[in-house]
């Protein structure tokens, strides 16, 4: 399966970015082949609805699961409609995308069944 991870950089060593809509980049890892691709987040510069835009972007990249630190209600709804499973990784410890992937593969991440916060305004 393809899993997307929000990160700040363009390599497997890049640190995890706990923001979803405003993450700097996303990597997509094919867990079957181990192939990585890196993509700048087009929603970073959006003046509003960054979560919605990022969710559509992830869907177009063909991800079936995503790992980030938090999901707003609109991002969560869009990801759910795209049948992408949302997982949470704690954002307060500095970890690399590769470490997050390990945690994902070993089933140590919690699924986010609902939005984790009330959504932002004016951003």
């Amino acid at each position: 399966m393809n899993v997307a991870i929000s990160i700040a950089g363009q390599t497997p060593d890049a640190p995890f970015d706990a923001r979803f809509g405003r993450a700097e980049s996303f990597c997509v890892v094919d867990t079957d082949t181990g192939a990585w691709t890196f993509h700048a987040n087009p929603a970073l510069s959006a003046s509003g609805g960054a979560g919605v835009l990022a969710a559509q972007f992830i869907a177009r990249l063909g991800a079936q699961a995503v790992v980030s630190g938090a999901y707003g209600p609109k991002a969560h709804r869009t990801l759910s409609a795209a049948r992408i499973e949302c997982f949470l990784a704690p954002g307060n410890e500095a970890r690399s995308a590769a470490e997050i992937l390990d945690a994902f593969n070993s089933g140590r991440l919690t699924p986010a069944d609902d939005a984790t916060h009330g959504g932002h305004h004016g951003d």
Binding site: S47, G48, H120, H121, G122, D123
Partner: peptide
């Protein structure tokens, strides 16, 4: 306009 965005920033 959009002082909300600036406030967020």
């Amino acid at each position: 306009e959009s002082s909300g965005k600036l406030v967020t920033e």
